[in-house]
Amino acid sequence: MRSYPPNSPKAAARLVALTMLADGHVSRIEAQTLERLGLPKAFGLSVEDLSAVLQGLCEDLLCSSQGDWCRPVVDAALINGLLAEVTDPGLRATVLRACVAVAEADEELADGECVVLMQAIQQWRVGTLPSLKAHPA
């Protein structure tokens, strides 16, 4: 897995990209949600930069899978490592809001998205999520 400087725009954006991939695919509505909310700019990135971070994450995940296509897209050790790259409280709040927006975008909260969000809450010691709509079962 490539590394980014702590609290860098790419480290923050990669956590959002991880949330986008956590359900096994990236949907158009997730990308549109990020653009609508101006999230690339909030991280100091262009839409193209955000796309490059997403592509890099996909490449890294493929390389690290070592042919094991049956394992989950994300695992606890990977998530914890990426969460550790963001230590600034303000940036953490922005990242968490973006991750929640991505998870809510398609109105279906997937297990992988829940894993990313819950680990962020636990590792970053967040009291509550910024907003999480109730999703039908």
Score class of each variant (00 low, 15 high):
Arg2Pro: 06
Leu45Asn: 10
Ile121Asp: 00
Glu104His: 11
Cys99Glu: 06
Ala22Glu: 04
Leu82Glu: 14
Trp69Glu: 11
Asp106Arg: 14
Val16Ser: 05
Leu96Pro: 07
Lys10Asp: 12
Ile79Ser: 02
Leu54Lys: 05
Leu37Met: 02
Ala42Asn: 07
Arg71Lys: 15
His135Thr: 12
Gly81Glu: 13
Lys41Met: 11
Ala120Tyr: 00
Ser65Cys: 12
Leu57Asn: 00
Ala11Cys: 08
Glu48Trp: 01
Val53Met: 09
Leu15Gln: 04
Phe43Asn: 01
Val102Trp: 09
Ala52Asp: 12
Ser51Thr: 10
Leu45His: 09
Glu59Leu: 10
Asp49Gln: 03
Val53Asp: 03
Pro89Glu: 00
Thr87Ser: 15
Cys63Gly: 05
Gly127Phe: 06
Gln119Leu: 15
Val116Asn: 07
Glu107Val: 15
Leu61Glu: 08
Val47Gln: 13
Ala42Val: 05
Asp111Glu: 14
Tyr4Glu: 11
Tyr4Trp: 15
Leu117Glu: 01
Leu129Val: 14
Ala22Met: 08
Leu82Pro: 00
Lys133His: 12
Arg92Ser: 03
Gly112His: 11
Arg36Thr: 02
Ser46Asn: 07
Ser3Ile: 01
Ala101Asn: 12
Met20Pro: 07
Glu48Ala: 06
Ala101Trp: 11
Leu45Val: 02
Arg71Phe: 13
Glu48Met: 01
Thr33Arg: 10
Asp88Cys: 03
Leu132Gln: 10
Arg2Glu: 02
Val115Thr: 09
Glu113Ile: 14
Val86Gln: 11
Ala105Thr: 10
Ser46Ala: 05
Leu129Asn: 04
Val95Asn: 00
Leu129Ser: 03
Trp69Asn: 07
Pro89Leu: 00
Gln123Trp: 08
Ala77Met: 10
Glu30Leu: 06
Leu39Trp: 07
Ala12Ser: 12
Leu57Phe: 00
Ala22Arg: 02
Val26Ser: 03
Gln55Met: 04
Glu108Gly: 07
Leu37Asn: 04
Val102Gly: 14
Asp49Met: 04
Ile79Thr: 03
Arg97Ser: 14
Gln55Trp: 10
Thr33Gly: 03
Leu54Pro: 01
Asp23Val: 06
Cys58Gly: 15
Ser27Leu: 13
Pro9Arg: 09
Val126Lys: 04
Gly24Asn: 03
Ser8Ile: 03
His135Ala: 07
Cys70Val: 13
Gly67Thr: 04
Glu104Pro: 09
Ile121Gly: 05
Ser64Pro: 00
